[in-house]
């Protein structure tokens, strides 16, 4: 079966077209839907197997990255998303989409004192666009099956993953939710200084999944590496290099095979 992907658009979404294209290259059918339309007609999600919230600056990120789109989800689409997840379908949030998934609490729910995790301003306070080395942190993420290390670009100002306390971190660890970590170019973990951990994220965390492994949010942009000429050093490399980003989309499609 060729899965159908709903690529969500909102005011300020700007990675929608290349993300849809990446899904198509991986073998899915992708369609765009505006958040206004989805709120008007939530049942439309029933026709889709994958929901993707792509990168961009939803509502300008004017009051915190992903915040307003997240509030639309929690106030208007909570049940829809719950049904979608209960049907064992897939959800992918990339960059701004990850920020949205975090701020909805869909990945790590809020407790009495609020959300225990967030994505906030990079340690150096600036937007940063660069390629980073990542490793699969051993989660059950469907999207990361059979991947070990990935080389992908980041492009964000608010990508620093922060946990409130040690208890939150150990909870994430024991639920196997930590999906991707920034690593040094030699693949080592532990001390990962700037620019290898580009934003100062706690525990070098670059991506998080839910407990089921079917919802993934990540700061890097897999849709920006599905062709060899997108690699920053492709002119130094042999012709047959594989594109790390494509694997994530292929895994999503493969899940429905």
């Amino acid at each position: 079966m060729k899965p159908k992907v709903l690529v969500l658009r909102a005011p300020g979404t700007n990675c929608d077209q290349e993300t849809a294209y990446a899904f198509e290259v991986a073998g899915a059918d992708a369609e765009f839907m505006h958040i206004n339309q989805l709120i008007e007609q939530p049942s439309a999600t029933q026709d889709f197997q994958i929901l993707c919230v792509p990168g961009g600056f939803s509502f300008g990120d004017d009051i915190g990255a992903g915040r307003i789109l997240a509030s639309k989800f929690t106030s208007r689409l909570k049940d829809t998303i719950e049904e979608f997840r209960a049907a064992e379908k897939l959800v992918l949030g990339i960059c701004n989409g990850f920020q949205v998934l975090i701020k909805t609490g869909f990945l790590v729910p809020a407790d009495a004192t609020g959300l225990p995790v967030t994505l906030t301003w990079n340690h150096n306070g600036r937007y940063d666009c660069r390629w980073v080395n990542l490793k699969n942190a051993g989660s059950d993420s469907v999207f990361l099956r059979d991947t070990e290390s990935l080389y992908l670009p980041i492009a964000h100002a608010e990508g620093r993953f922060v946990v409130r306390d040690a208890a939150t971190l150990s909870q994430l660890n024991s639920a196997r939710q930590i999906a991707l970590k920034y690593v040094n170019p030699d693949g080592t973990n532990g001390q990962v200084p700037f620019p290898h951990n580009p934003n100062g994220s706690d525990e070098n965390i670059a991506g998080l999944c839910d407990e089921s492994g079917r919802v993934l949010g990540l700061m890097p942009h897999p849709e920006r590496f599905i062709d060899r000429t997108q690699h920053p050093r492709w002119t130094r490399q042999p012709d047959e290099i594989s594109a790390d980003g494509l694997k994530i989309f292929e895994n999503a499609v493969g899940y429905f095979a």
Partner: peptide, 23 residues
Amino acid sequence: IIRQYDHEVLGGSVIKPLVGIHN
């Protein structure tokens, strides 16, 4: 300057503003 600009969005990047073994 260059790193503060998103030079990869739209997915069509072939030759980036910074190139070489350490980008």
